[in-house]
Amino acid sequence: MAAPAGSPPAGGSPAGGPPAEAITAVPVRHPGRWIAAAIVVALAFVVIRSMATNPRFEWSVVGDFLFSSRIIDGLIVTLYLTAIAMVIGILLGILLAVMRLSPNPMVSGASGFYIWLFRGTPVLVQLLFWNFISAVYPTIDFGLVSFEANSLITPLVAAILGLGLNEGAYMAEIVRAGILSVDEGQGEAASALGMTRLQTMRRIVLPQAMRVIVPPTGNETISMLKTSSLASVIALTELLYAGQLIYSANYKQIPLLITVSIWYLVATTVLSIGQYYLERRFGRGAKREQKQTPLQRLRRILIPTHVRPEDVQTGGGG
């Protein structure tokens, strides 16, 4: 077919012409970016210099205590407490969410009441409440065996109960949103195949709700890591209280709070990275194109690969 008159002067046949000319254009300048960068660098310089040169920060004390056994022991208690409280929270959350969606009004109402109660009171109050539970129930009776509440409800148990039961209420709402996000047709297809409501929930709905449940659960875990510091008020030697015990003896409050903060930052950073990759994994298939990970982006910046004209695929049939 001949090219119509007035076509671009490229010449050649319309199907599979010669290689197209690569675009070499002067890029748009961004003076605003340079100004912003200058301001940020100047501010960072001022802050860092002040922190480094002000002797009252006592960085040497931070260095002394960063890896001290008392701080590390506190960190371990924090991580342990976070993990147990989240496990309790997730299991309780699934149970409460399924109950909340039950057709039985008593079951659904009980779940609603629980969520109302535990979301409606501060977790700090709940922690104190569990800590003082022996005032209400001096002995805890399981029928065959009974315990002195004071020996059973140690600060650790009170913290696990307080944080875990409170988390259950929040996780219930997250799981419920996940369940509701699954297409109704999935449940219908399962019913039509003769599956019961519980089978459908366990085998069909919950696995597909995970994509919606996982990202906020990661968030909750990071949040829990920091909220666990509230257990310091019931004298549980987690990370913050370990630092407090040290500075109550040596009066080096600021360096020890910095020490503690560094460990919180390390732990939340590790969790954030984990969350990022977990979300990527569960988001597969939902988006057309996966965004690059920071590592991949860094590699691209460090090792630039420009598209050369000869790499540009020539269109049309060969």
Binding site: E188, A189, L193, G194
Partner: peptide, 29 residues
């Protein structure tokens, strides 16, 4: 449920279980 298991149903929007392969979909029930 037991009675439904004896009646097959095919939906307009397929409603295949999205987290399962074709084989797993068929083996499930």
């Amino acid at each position: 449920a037991r009675k439904r298991a004896e009646i097959g149903m095919v939906f307009q929007h397929f409603n295949l279980f999205g987290h399962m392969t074709a084989l797993q979909n068929v083996v499930e029930a």
